[in-house]
Design a protein around this nucleic acid. Structure first.
Length: 612
DNA sequence: AAAGCGTTGC
């Protein structure tokens, strides 16, 4: 039959081009189909030569598929070359190449392509293009450019698209403009929000230190009856991260319940966020349990666990884990080295810490940056090597926020060891660079007061008041079952009878007797400092509150319960000592008024109780 | 044919 057909063709020239077309189109269809399945550069480039031989080099649709195949293989350069040779690129061609640059970490090039598209004026961007371009702005945290493109979007009338709006709100979130992100989210009520847009707004709050609102939105999403979407791995990782930064174990457990329910425990990003959450909420054992369940470890899971051990005072175990990671050929990054230095700093491994700082380039290929130096300055300072800390700090040229952290570390060192000269130098640098001005003034004022320069101290305090510098109030809090009890620095109104202070003094005495070091003289020194300045008192009371919280937990929790203490300054480095001590103390009756009672999540939906 | 969301540091 075929034979006869071909014979007919031979004698019917009028039909020849028709058959030729059919043959070509059939070949094209199969080539394009093969392209979409190609996962190897070799296959894609041989398909390209076949396509070109058949004469489809100018066919926009076919070349778009080709470009797309190269983009999937991350061959952005080849994709761009093909694009540049196209006689008539359309919006798909432009968008494919722009998203290719996004996917290969070249958002700047993606943006310049968009600019070129704008100047060309031959093709108008559509929803797909805008979504890609906002993603590029997110990556660059470029709100200025993002806003101007947002204006173009509004003019084009293409806003009522869930994907575009999500990318837009995500961009505002990444540029730290949460209010605008929220406005975009609120405006999406008509075009339909989905799990991605909810995740974007939750992430915007979570990444901008507004964890409460992030969690509140998560709850709203879960009780929203208008959507069939359930939380996915992206949303959960973000929500869990919010719980970590809030130090709210109960909320973290609720999120863990949702993870288990949705079967997302195997996702390594979710698992890593859970690990970090348990560690930051004080449960090292749960963190470790999660860590051991992770099958394929990444640099992030190891770094999180090293940091967890470091913050819980287990410096040697942290370093051991670091060795294990290196042995597994997982390459450490700058955060890993920060965790390692923290481990040394928090466990008094000064020599080891200096060793890591000096060998990190050569051994691990990580160039130390100001954050690593700050960590080492802090470590030297804590262990009395203040002059070395100062000498090191002077060699680092850094300003802005990083500079403030560096000189802030030195300031603490000077204060801890009563070095007025160091406090003076560090304060001067902070005040000059207009960073942490309040703490600097307070510390300086205290240093003068200690050295007997009462007049200087007084004039500084006046200067502070005139400048309107107000220090954020420190607070500690404790979770007991479903409630959170908060204690604010300087506020001992919960101690009407003075019994707490007596208890603290007793506790402190016992701690000293057992050789507990650190800021152990907070109560006795308070009587010295109380007339001088608020700062010392704040720190003192903040520490009091941790002990207070301990005492509180001891009284209200059944035997064997875990007590978690958090504060908004840093993880309590004395917790381990305090725990050891408190376990030997007989229960006492103390009447404590609830200072503050946050609204708390009643955990009814948790499905993984067996985990704890 | 092309698009949007997540984890480690302070």
């Amino acid at each position: 039959m075929n034979k006869r057909f071909l014979q007919n063709v031979r004698f019917a020239p009028a039909n020849a081009s028709f058959v030729n077309d059919v043959f070509h189109l059939k070949s094209k269809a199969s080539l394009v189909h093969k392209l979409s399945e190609s996962t190897h550069l070799f296959l894609t480039s041989s398909l390209q030569s076949s396509i070109f031989k058949l004469g489809f080099a100018s066919d926009t649709f076919t070349v778009n598929r080709l470009i797309n195949s190269y983009v999937k293989l991350r061959e952005t350069h080849t994709a761009r070359k093909l694009f540049d040779e196209m006689p008539e690129p359309n919006v798909v061609s432009w968008t494919s190449v722009i998203s290719g640059f996004n996917d290969t970490g070249q958002p700047q090039t993606a943006l310049s392509m968009f600019q070129q598209m704008h100047e060309d004026e031959s093709v108008a961007p559509n929803e797909f293009t805008f979504a890609s371009v906002f993603k590029a702005c997110s990556a660059l945290a470029e709100s200025r450019i993002g806003k101007s493109i947002h204006a173009r979007l509004e003019m084009s009338g293409r806003r009522s698209n869930t994907v575009v709006s999500s990318s837009l709100l995500d961009m505002y979130g990444k540029c730290n403009d949460v209010e605008t992100a929220r406005r975009v989210f609120d405006s999406m009520i008509g075009c339909g929000r989905n799990v991605v847009s909810w995740t974007s707004i939750i992430t915007a709050y979570a990444q901008n230190a507004r964890g409460h609102e992030a969690f509140e939105l998560f709850r709203t999403f879960n009780s929203d009856t208008t959507t069939l979407d359930r939380p996915n791995q992206f949303m959960l990782a973000s929500v869990i991260s919010a719980c970590s930064s809030l130090g709210r174990l109960q909320w973290g457990k609720v999120a863990h319940g949702v993870v288990t329910h949705g079967g997302y425990e195997v996702n390594h990003v979710v698992a890593t966020s859970l690990l970090d959450m348990y560690a930051k909420c004080g449960s090292l054992s749960c963190a470790e349990k999660i860590f051991l369940r992770i099958c394929r470890h990444s640099v992030i899971s190891y770094t999180s666990m090293i940091m967890a051990k470091a913050k819980h005072g287990l410096g040697e175990a942290a370093l051991q884990l670091f060795d294990e990671m290196v042995a597994k050929r997982i390459r450490p990054n700058y955060v890993t080295l920060l965790a390692v230095l923290h481990a040394c700093s928090h466990s008094g491994l000064v020599t080891e810490g200096l060793g890591y700082l000096n060998s990190m380039v050569e051994k691990y290929g990580v160039v130390p940056d100001p954050r690593h130096y700050t960590c080492v300055v802090d470590m030297l300072g804590r262990f009395g090597r203040v002059d070395e800390a100062y000498a090191l700090a002077k060699t680092i040229e850094v300003g802005g926020e990083q500079g403030a952290l560096l000189w802030g570390a030195l300031l603490s060192a000077g204060r801890l060891h009563g070095r007025v000269d160091i406090v003076g130098e560090a304060s001067k640098r902070l005040i000059e660079s207009n960073q942490q001005v309040t703490s600097a003034y307070v510390a300086l004022s205290n240093a003068y007061a200690v050295a007997g320069g009462w007049e200087d101290s007084e004039s500084l305090r006046l200067e502070m008041r005139r400048g309107g510098n107000v220090k954020e109030r420190a607070c500690s809090w404790i979770e007991i079952k479903d409630s959170v009890y908060a204690f604010h620095a300087g506020d001992l109104s919960c101690d009407e009878s003075g019994e707490i202070v007596r208890f603290m003094k007793d506790l402190e005495k016992r701690m000293k007797e057992r050789g507990h070091r650190g800021s152990s003289s907070m109560i006795t020194s308070s009587s010295v400092f109380v007339d001088v300045d608020e700062e010392a008192k704040e720190e003192i009371v903040s520490l009091h509150c941790e002990r207070l919280a301990l005492a509180f937990g001891l009284i209200h929790l059944p035997e064997g319960s875990t007590i978690r203490i958090m504060n908004n300054l840093r993880m309590c480095r004395d917790c381990h000592e305090a725990f050891k001590l408190i376990s030997g103390i007989v229960e006492r009756e103390i009447v404590v008024r609830d200072v503050n009672r946050f609204h708390c999540f009643k955990d009814g939906s948790c499905t993984c109780r067996d985990f704890w």
